[in-house]
Simulated assay, not measured.
Amino acid sequence: MDETVLYPTTPARQALAAQFNLPYDDAMQDWEWQVANSDAFDQYLAAYTIAMPSDQRFSLMEMHCPMRRGFGRRSHAQHSMGEDQIASRGLQPST
């Protein structure tokens, strides 16, 4: 059985950036992690269909990873803090 290897592609990233009005630049490393937005989780999930090209599905699922780990458009400082530190500073943790 042949193994399918999936990876992010530039066309997939550009298509998702256009679809969700996300920033895109060829110099963005780990684009899926940089643009992930937990507020748009429902939009991303609704867009994920078998009809979507596999490279777009791969990138869209990778965008879910930072959201599941508590990232997703939090500031760099917030990433290095625990939830109690975030709350004590009056900041909102990502959901």
Rank of each mutant, 00 (worst) to 15 (best):
Met1Pro: 13
Asp2Trp: 04
Thr4Asp: 05
Thr4Val: 14
Thr4Tyr: 06
Thr4Trp: 09
Val5Leu: 06
Val5Glu: 13
Leu6Thr: 06
Tyr7His: 14
Tyr7Phe: 14
Pro8Tyr: 04
Pro8Gly: 03
Thr9Lys: 00
Thr9Ala: 01
Thr10Ser: 11
Thr10Gly: 09
Ala15His: 12
Gln19Trp: 11
Gln19Val: 01
Phe20Gly: 03
Phe20Lys: 00
Phe20Cys: 01
Leu22Val: 04
Leu22Ser: 04
Leu22Pro: 01
Tyr24Lys: 01
Tyr24Cys: 02
Asp25His: 12
Asp25Ser: 14
Asp25Thr: 06
Asp26Met: 09
Ala27Met: 12
Met28Tyr: 15
Trp31Leu: 00
Glu32His: 13
Glu32Trp: 07
Trp33Glu: 08
Ala36Ile: 00
Asn37Lys: 03
Ser38Arg: 13
Asp39His: 11
Asp39Tyr: 06
Asp39Ser: 07
Asp39Gln: 10
Ala40Gln: 15
Ala40Trp: 14
Ala40His: 14
Asp42Trp: 04
Asp42Ile: 05
Asp42Glu: 14
Gln43Tyr: 06
Gln43Phe: 06
Gln43His: 12
Tyr44Trp: 10
Tyr44Val: 09
Tyr44Leu: 08
Leu45Gln: 14
Leu45Glu: 15
Leu45Trp: 15
Leu45Phe: 15
Ala46Ser: 11
Ala46Met: 05
Ala47Asn: 08
Thr49Ser: 12
Ala51Gln: 10
Ala51Trp: 03
Met52Asn: 09
Pro53Gln: 11
Ser54Leu: 15
Gln56Ile: 00
Gln56His: 05
Phe58Pro: 00
Phe58Ser: 01
Phe58Trp: 13
Leu60Cys: 06
Glu62Met: 12
Glu62Pro: 00
Cys65Asn: 09
Cys65Thr: 07
Pro66Arg: 00
Met67Ala: 01
Arg69Leu: 13
Arg69Asn: 09
Arg69Gly: 10
Gly70Phe: 02
Gly70Thr: 03
Phe71Thr: 01
Phe71Cys: 03
Arg73Cys: 05
Arg74His: 12
Ser75Leu: 07
His76Phe: 11
Ala77Gln: 12
Ala77Met: 08
Gln78Pro: 02
Gln78Ala: 14
His79Val: 12
Ser80Thr: 04
Met81Asn: 04
Asp84Thr: 07
Asp84Ile: 02
Gln85Pro: 01
Gln85Thr: 11
Ile86Arg: 03
Ala87Ser: 09
Ser88Cys: 05
Ser88Asp: 14
Gly90Cys: 06
Leu91Asn: 00
Gln92Trp: 04
Gln92Cys: 13
Pro93Val: 05
Ser94Lys: 02
Ser94Thr: 13
Ser94Val: 14
Ser94Leu: 07
Thr95Gly: 10
Thr95Ala: 09
